[in-house]
């Protein structure tokens, strides 16, 4: 297993392009958005989770959706990825209602890493990643040069190339998660949606996945949308933050602009103190007890 420090080392060439990163942030145009939701009512059978929800995913952003448990953030992600049909309202992808587009067409533009996926028994890493090519394959054309190239690139981007011949069952949790990300990358979609990609991982592997997401966003130009539980990861890595509570968007914008002690209290009912992260210069949320102080 690679150590996080090594991963960051491996990304060192990127440090030189810190300037470029800031450029990328500037290029992120809030007015253009290939994926957005209008006046969404979301729910399962009788239970309505969200009503009148409007949401914009800025192109080129690393958007992170945060909020307390059961606030409807995963539900929103499911709606944005066509997994859940809105009760009312519409999710628009490239100007068209996503539920009217052919399933394979959507899968060529938008990739999703669900909360739980199942690796068939005895499957190798490369074989699993290759399944991400399905939307690009036809009945008679099941393995083209483009498929091979896309799988190679996905393995490379996630640093899972050396694992490609191994059985998925034998991998550690962190490795396995990178393999699933590779499978979604093999889909070669401009939009990447990830539902709680760091849950169940230890801190080093969480950072590894977050760094990978950042790399995909900044280096490879993907628009990345992730649901996260860890506020500080969200503040640190997101370029665009969507804070949800009770199915509604409470605030949306750059973490530095919207994350305040008031917002954290409103969304999570948690007293906190916010300082600047000395490394990333982003808001760092220090939770306090119920009394609002430590003593």
């Amino acid at each position: 297993m690679r150590k996080t420090s090594e991963l960051i080392q491996a990304d060192l060439p990127k440090v030189k392009s810190h300037q470029h990163n800031i450029d990328a942030e500037n290029h992120e145009d809030l007015s253009t958005s290939r994926l957005n939701g209008h006046d969404l009512t979301l729910g399962y059978e009788q239970r309505i989770v969200s009503q009148g929800l409007d949401v914009n995913i800025p192109d080129g952003s690393f958007t992170v959706i945060i909020g307390p448990n059961a606030c409807g953030k995963s539900t929103l992600l499911r709606a944005l990825s066509r997994l859940l049909k809105p009760v009312a309202g519409q999710v628009i992808l490239d100007g068209k209602p996503i539920h009217r587009l052919p399933a394979k067409e959507v899968a060529k533009r938008l990739g999703l890493l669900p909360q739980s996926s199942i690796a068939p028994e005895g499957i190798t890493v490369a074989d699993l990643v290759a399944r991400g090519r399905y939307p690009h394959q036809k009945l008679l054309s099941q393995w083209s040069a483009a498929d091979e190239q896309a799988v190679l690139e996905a393995l490379q981007a996630t640093k899972t190339g050396p694992l490609s011949h191994r059985l998925v069952d034998e991998l550690s949790g962190g490795q396995r998660q990178r393999v699933w990300v590779a499978m979604v990358l093999a889909q070669q979609t401009p939009l990447l949606l990830l539902d709680e990609p760091t849950t169940y991982l230890d801190i080093a592997h969480q950072i590894e996945i977050m760094e990978l997401c950042r790399q995909l966003n900044r280096g490879n130009g993907h628009t990345v949308v992730a649901v996260l539980h860890d506020l500080n990861h969200a503040c640190r890595y997101a370029s665009h933050l969507i804070a949800m509570k009770d199915g509604n968007v409470v605030a949306a914008g750059a973490p530095r602009e919207i994350v305040t002690e008031e917002l954290i209290h409103e969304v999570f009912g948690l007293h906190s103190q916010i300082i600047e992260d000395p490394v990333s210069r982003t808001p760092l949320v220090i939770p306090l007890g119920e009394s609002g102080s430590w003593d």
Binding site: S81, L83, L112, S117, I118, A119, P120, G132, Y134, Q187
Partner: peptide
């Protein structure tokens, strides 16, 4: 073989 990955993953890969 896509359905073997789970309903959500299969759905996301363009399977009805």
């Amino acid at each position: 073989h896509m359905l073997e990955l789970g309903d959500d993953a299969a759905n996301a890969l363009g399977i009805r």
